[in-house]
Amino acid sequence: MLSPKGAILIFFLTGFLLSIIILVLNYLLSPKSKSLIKRETYECGLETIGPTWVQFKGNYFMYALVFVLFDVETIFLYPWAVRFNVLGLFAFVEMVIFIGILVLGLWYAWKEGALEWK
């Protein structure tokens, strides 16, 4: 059998190369227009006002922070879930405490208004 990495690599390369081939084909087949206006930013037909790459709403960042907290947790949760039927009561209680701490974190973030859209 192929190793998992090999299988993933084959799928990755196929998807990657196929989409490049599609794009190159399109580039070769499509008509070219000489106009330069086509290269302008497409917003409302008018020239765009002000820079786009600016500092953005901080609210998004708060959500991302809370997300990271929970995402790291799943690394511990999945192995536990797989062996759940084998591990005893001890592991279960331990995990309840672990999730309890995270719920506490969620409650705190909620209380402090990190989950409010302003």
């Binding site: 794009l23 399109n26 290269r39």
Partner: peptide, 26 residues
């Protein structure tokens, strides 16, 4: 026609459509 607009950040702009299709295939 495929073209690259003037103000874009070239490499991420070109790579995004390629990668977005690679992910579902994977």
């Amino acid at each position: 026609e495929i073209f690259i607009p003037n103000n874009v950040d070239r490499w991420p702009y070109l790579l995004a459509p390629v990668l977005i299709f690679t992910i579902p295939v994977m």
